[in-house]
Design a protein around this nucleic acid. Structure first.
Lengths: 216, 216
DNA sequence: CGGAATCCTCTTCGATACTG
DNA sequence: CAGTATCGAAGAGGATTCCG
């Protein structure tokens, strides 16, 4: 059993489950879809193999994470968010928002386009669930797909499983600027850094739902 | 310098500052108003004096916490939330909400009415700032006062500094039930477990703003 | 080969004692 | 009252080995 603060306070109880090192970063990775053990090891350099196994076991016990079997050949085992993991979105969203207010990232820090995609997705926890169009999003060479089902947004890494209704492609730095609110969709489109493949109206709807900045 | 994940991701950057043991619980304490060093030691049993000093120093550097001088005789030094600490409210609110969904608290855990008051206050980050009436709230013998100034809610532990416009008194277990959504204001009032001292309309307005459950 | 337990070293934590 | 100093215990990081 993990160390506990032994306080009835809901914040303390949450931190009993989530507060140890690496725990919330594992959850962050799973926001972008299911991941194999080795995917997580790669995404979290420094974690150490036994610690990752211990954290996953702990999170599984608390239904933050659940094991899934990946489709396709190989029947690979992987991890995805469980019920309590889905409920973590607001926590991760608040942390992401707060972290965005910190001074600029020091040099040498790792950089992964999927983190910005996750930040985008976390900003629209509830509203974006209504966006039912299968959308493929490519940022700086990283591709994910997402689709709302009315209740939540499903998101996975990799190309869309069927032909997407909307395909968005964006240069990495432009996407960072969009998510940080330092550039507008119109500028990104006209400079060719952002491209919409599909109905233009669907693209605009996507930008609105995920609160990307529009021209002033 | 504390250990860092060295990832540009905003969530990881936030956790670099907030993710170590005890850090967010220090912030939680300060949501209920300024605290002296010894107050914090008492509120966080197990923390160890050097660790508390180290955490406070670290949080001060990141402007999550700032030092203040308490009014009144003694000119006691104390700690309060800094700019980034005020911005932490949504993070703490999300954690509190998530922690409320966990299974019931195991026996033996510490219990403090102020934690429920904090949970209440965190639920109404923005809206409640408009509640300008100086309000004194007593739950199970713990008294705090709070007042909105249009921008944020100010809250301090202890009796109100001047004559409050509204005074609410509630039995501990009833207040817990109200905050958890397991009881209604009307039931609590009619059973005498909750009492309003002041304009009845102000009390109702307070309950609405802080989303206490009303009769079905 | 991917998934995980073992071993060892280093860092962090917790408790007590001590100081301005 | 507000911290610093110290030290044993627990946790984390890295390499290697084991299992399927």
């Amino acid at each position: 059993m993990a160390r506990s603060y032994e306080q009835g306070c809901h914040i303390a109880r949450a931190l009993d489950v989530l507060g140890e090192r690496w725990t919330l970063l594992i959850a962050r990775e799973l926001v972008a879809g299911s991941r194999r053990y080795s995917d997580l090891l790669e995404a979290l350099p420094g974690i150490g193999t036994s610690l990752l196994a211990a954290r996953l076991k702990h999170l599984e016990q608390h239904r933050v994470v659940r094991q899934v079997t990946l489709p396709g050949p190989g029947r690979t085992a992987a991890y995805a968010l469980g019920e309590r993991g889905e409920a973590l979105m607001p926590v991760l969203a608040a942390l992401s928002e707060w972290g965005g207010g910190l001074p600029d990232t020091p040099p040498g820090y790792a950089d992964n386009p999927v983190w910005s995609i996750i930040a985008l997705r976390l900003r629209a926890c509830a509203e974006a669930a209504s966006f039912g169009i299968l959308t493929e999003l490519t940022v700086g060479g990283t591709t994910v797909w997402l689709q709302g089902d009315g209740e939540r947004v499903r998101m996975e890494t990799g190309p869309a499983p069927t032909n997407p209704g909307l395909r968005l492609t964006c240069a990495k730095d432009t996407f960072y600027a969009l998510v940080k609110g330092r550039a507008t969709v119109e500028d990104a489109l006209s400079s060719g850094q952002l491209a919409i493949d599909g109905e233009a109206a669907d693209g605009q709807h996507f930008f609105d739902l995920f609160r990307l900045p529009r021209a002033a």
